[in-house]
Design a protein around this nucleic acid. Structure first.
Lengths: 333, 333
DNA sequence: ATCAGTTTAGAAAACCTTTTCTATAGAAAG
DNA sequence: CTTTCTATAGAAAAGGTTTTCTAAACTGAT
């Protein structure tokens, strides 16, 4: 049962392949009678146009490559959903690739996507090494490239990013307003956005003369992360410099802190306040419910998709950096 | 800066495109001297072979389409990761599509994937309507099609599935062994696997003469699901037929049950036992940690990938149905 | 020096479309 | 009854590869 091609349809309908193509794409006048014949033939043979051939000639595949470090964090799922909601209706299909946060894998996947002639590439949290080495900057000249949360003022490229800095500031000011100044910062090891957040935190604490402490948790799969965060925070709560408040770089870590407090009998929010980051579903199902900083991830993905669509369809484009506001959500922690 | 093609490389190296192709694919003897020339030209021009053209002629795109209802449930992320770990090294790239659990969207996406000439399609939790209507059965004749957890003894097709039935049995027997017979079953509305699980539950309860009750939660995004499960379970705990144990169809629902117990002051596990399903990360970070039924999701994905690879590469194949064991994990609930 | 056999290279067809350019038929206008 | 225009249809080129088939050049044996 060989595949049915436009040839077969043409023969069946007794017309040329040109005419069949025109009926399908509706981009050239075709007599009503002819059109009917062709449509009947298409239906009869269940013809399915080969998009490869079309892409080859039109020099556009209507595909977008998405690179994400992982799928485990719901942050990424939300972003991807946001992208999809915009690109799907426009007829784009997406290649989703996980880099596992590895520099070489990231490059390898990008090369593969280029060979596949994607019309654009969206990267979520790109690896620092590939940014610094100039690899991405060169890439941006070859193909529409959009970085989501690629916090790197340096390179010429398009961005959509959370104003995570503002989010951190808002959280810290909130704590301050509540009279809390012994604030610890809980972060993962390797990530641009964590670096940025820490910088802002440091700056704020120094400026106000508060003594802070930064705890670094080794990145891993999320259950481990939570476990480690819990242990680290238990250490903190047990120590002499016991903080009154904790700002975590994501919701998983915040859950770890929450669990630590429970284990130690520390009351949240009475004796310890906790604010997470991302407003993932997780933060809505803990008891007490986690306060967190909403990053509007779905919207972020949507913005990214709209921007890359512009880049793929408009000829000239100036580089843009689009910031999305964060929002402090105070729940019960 | 037009794209560099095999033509350009051939000219640069002073050979024919045939020779360039042979050097790239290493599938025909080429004199060492010639090879060097070509390799230098390739590097100099940064030639990137157009996979569309290759796919067109070889009638294989080395792509796989994955359909999933959503990304929100970590169950799906894990499965996808499992698939990826197997297909990636074999040179396959995946189109990931979310159906949002909608019948028509599912069909639409499948058509699009077929137009894109995917070599195979993996569906996670396919829509019941598309199974019943015979759509999928017809599809399976056109393209290698593998269903993950498409519990539908009926249609001729390849499957990889959790022996969810056994999981339910194991959990129920466990409860029974603990002397608990007032067991409620907490489930979402629309899903094959939930149906299967409920059937097994019903059968068990009837057979032993225990009085059970099934609670149906409207499927939604997961935070809502948790909230609704919580409310439903609060109603249950408050009622006269208050259960001693709850089996939930997934971990989210189990969290809802856990939260309900906390709200009502019911002690877990002392006064109420809860077992979830899936062993997602969620179940490892609650307090108390959730007992659950592990479905080995990553492994499931890996099995699926291996099987579809067979289907895509071997000529003849008999339909297979591969079951993967579940495992009851007793933690603290 | 001739012949057969072995390496190596290239020309051209093929894959399935879209698109440009040309051609035909019929209608309208003179 | 020509001529011009319009509406419609088809032939052929193009897109970038792979692959088959043919050809050339060299090797070694007679």
């Amino acid at each position: 049962m060989a595949k049915v091609t436009i040839q077969d349809v043409a023969k069946e309908a007794g017309v040329s392949i040109t005419t069949v193509s025109r009926v399908m794409n509706n981009n050239y006048p075709v007599a009503e009678k002819t059109r009917k014949k062709v449509e009947i033939a298409i239906k009869k043979l269940a013809f399915r146009p080969n998009l490869l051939a079309r892409s080859l000639i039109q020099n556009s595949t209507k595909t977008i490559g998405i690179l994400t470090p992982s799928l485990e964090n719901l942050f990424f799922s939300e972003v991807i959903k946001g992208i999809d909601q915009v690109t799907g209706p426009k007829g784009y299909t997406t290649f989703l690739c996980h880099t596992e946060g590895k520099e070489d894998k990231e490059r390898e996947l990008i090369e593969s996507l280029l060979n596949r002639q994607v019309d654009g590439i969206i990267m979520i949290d790109p690896r620092r090494e590939n940014v610094l080495s100039g690899y991405l900057e060169k890439l941006a000249k070859e193909v529409p490239l959009l970085l989501i949360n690629g916090h790197s003022a340096g390179i010429a490229c398009d961005y959509v990013l959370n104003a995570a800095e503002d989010g951190v500031m808002e959280a810290l000011r909130y704590f301050e307003g509540e009279g809390l100044t012994k604030i610890a910062f809980l972060r993962g090891k390797k990530s641009y956005s964590y670096d940025i957040k820490e910088e802002v935190y440091d700056h704020f604490m120094k400026e106000h003369g508060y003594s802070g402490q930064v705890v670094r948790i080794k990145d891993g799969n999320d259950a481990h992360t939570v476990e480690q965060a819990k242990e680290a925070v238990m250490g903190l709560l047990d120590g002499e410099d016991c903080p009154e408040a904790i700002l975590a770089c994501n919701d998983w870590m915040a859950v770890g802190a929450l669990n630590a407090a429970k284990s130690m009998g520390t009351q949240v929010p009475k004796d310890l306040r906790i604010i997470g980051f991302d407003n993932t579903i997780i933060s809505q199902i803990t008891e007490p419910k986690l306060s967190t900083i909403d990053q509007q991830m779905t919207k972020l993905g949507g913005l990214a998709a709209k921007r890359i669509y512009q880049m793929m369809t408009d000829e000239d484009h100036n580089r843009q950096k689009i910031y999305l506001e964060t929002k402090l959500i105070i729940r019960e922690s």
